[in-house]
């Protein structure tokens, strides 16, 4: 057995410390050590985007980062977005446009969409689709997700 690593990560504003094996990925840490179960693991190989979270302000795949690598980092998950009042318009637009059904993909969708909107990109549907191409949804058929993102950008009121 490898040695345990003592890791402290700020997750949604809470300092969470635990002793873990190096092979634990960041999403498993967030779900089991911190109890934030909003972030989902789908494929665990970087393809589906369900695990997309913010680490030090950048959207990343939580399944492709080890928790030990996030020692000292600042992580925001879907719970953090709600808790900090971020992405209010985006969350409202997802509801209004029916941009989710089972909701499994939604935490990752919101983080990827937020990155897109905050970088000041256009509401052009093809450009939105190109940015969101790494987030899979097995329910909605994507139209409604693109509608929601475009609506937020067109409103001009920010995410």
């Amino acid at each position: 057995m490898s040695r345990l690593h003592r890791v402290t990560i700020e997750i949604n504003g809470e300092q969470v410390t635990a002793s873990i094996a190096a092979r634990v990925n960041l999403i498993d840490f967030i779900r089991t050590e911190a109890g934030f179960t909003g972030s989902h693991l789908g494929c665990e190989h970087g393809v589906c985007g369900a695990c997309t979270i913010e680490v030090d302000g950048a959207a990343v795949r939580g399944c492709l980062m080890l928790a030990v690598q996030a020692d000292g980092a600042n992580v925001v998950t879907v719970e953090g977005l709600a808790g900090m009042g971020r992405a209010k318009n985006l969350r409202a637009a997802f509801l209004a446009e029916n941009a989710l059904q089972c909701g499994y993909c939604t935490p990752g969708m919101l983080v990827s969409a937020l990155e897109y909107i905050e970088s000041g990109e256009s509401s052009d549907r093809a450009t939105i689709r190109a940015h969101m191409a790494g987030n899979y949804c097995r329910c909605t058929g994507y139209q409604a997700i693109v509608d929601a993102i475009a609506a937020v950008i067109e409103s001009g009121e920010g995410a």
């Binding site: 970087g46 985007g49 997309t52 795949r61 980062m65 990827s112 897109y116 190109a130 940015h131 790494g134």
Partner: peptide
């Protein structure tokens, strides 16, 4: 660069 994977993967 824009053809390499997607933004979240390019961030790492």
């Amino acid at each position: 660069l824009p053809h390499v994977a997607n933004s979240a993967i390019r961030n790492r």
